[in-house]
Amino acid sequence: MRDDAPRRLKHDPGAPPALSRALDALRKGGDDRARLERVGARLGELLDAPPPIATSAGAAAYKGTVLKLIVGGLLLLAPLAWLMRGEESTKPVKPQPTELAQAQPRIGAPEPPKIASAPSAVLPAVAREQTPSALLGERAERKTSNVVAARARRAPTATRQIADAPSERSATDVAETPELDQGPVAAQEQQEPAAPKPEKAVAAVKPAATDTLPMPSEAQLLLAARKAMPDEPERALRLLSQHQKRFADGLFVPEREVLSIEALRSLGRSAEANVRLQQFKAQYPDSFHLRRLQR
């Protein structure tokens, strides 16, 4: 296959030495072993988890996506009829994440109830058994106590929220994520304890339905906080607190704490920052973040 391809520069004796060295350095890259270990540990069980769709069924389900999109389009053309008879949506052959991903963002839309109930009816049994939400739920139950204990005074409800319904939190999160950069989430934060209605409908029927989306949302929440940090540390702090509530035992807990400490510092709340730093040290004595925090 490569016979027709042009010779690579590294095999080209005419290439400038500086370029060869640069390419060679790029090829080697940095030493990321420690990083891979860290992130591998954070990904944890996910690395060994079965894929969201059973591998053998994956290809078939993937091909079925087009059909389902068409069916979905037809359903959208007749929203009223669909509203009356939501069971129509059970027709898709083999529901899978693509469809869920489309359905979920609508949960927070103006007319949520009818949409929210539809995907729940088509939840794949496969997904229920093999979701990362389930894994995270387990992790939450296992680790939340010590993670949250340190911050109990700040987020007394975090444990309950995560342990009770990780996927319902993420359902809202999906709906909100696109708005993170615009800022409304921060304003919405105050409403957090009163969860939007559709969540219950979703979570009641399909506890693991959000398997494809919750975790990037977690990252996005943190990234939004990080983005807000330089100019609006207060808002960053609110987003971080939101993260703490939703993802008390999320994948980015150390990062959240680091950002929180930095936000507190930039707000001049050094006493709180120090308390939090001590908690962080106790929790993650070997964290590479400590070097950054202790500068």
Partner: peptide
């Protein structure tokens, strides 16, 4: 990098 590496694998 850590965060994005993780995000990629998610």
């Amino acid at each position: 990098l850590d965060d994005l590496l993780q995000e990629v694998f998610l």
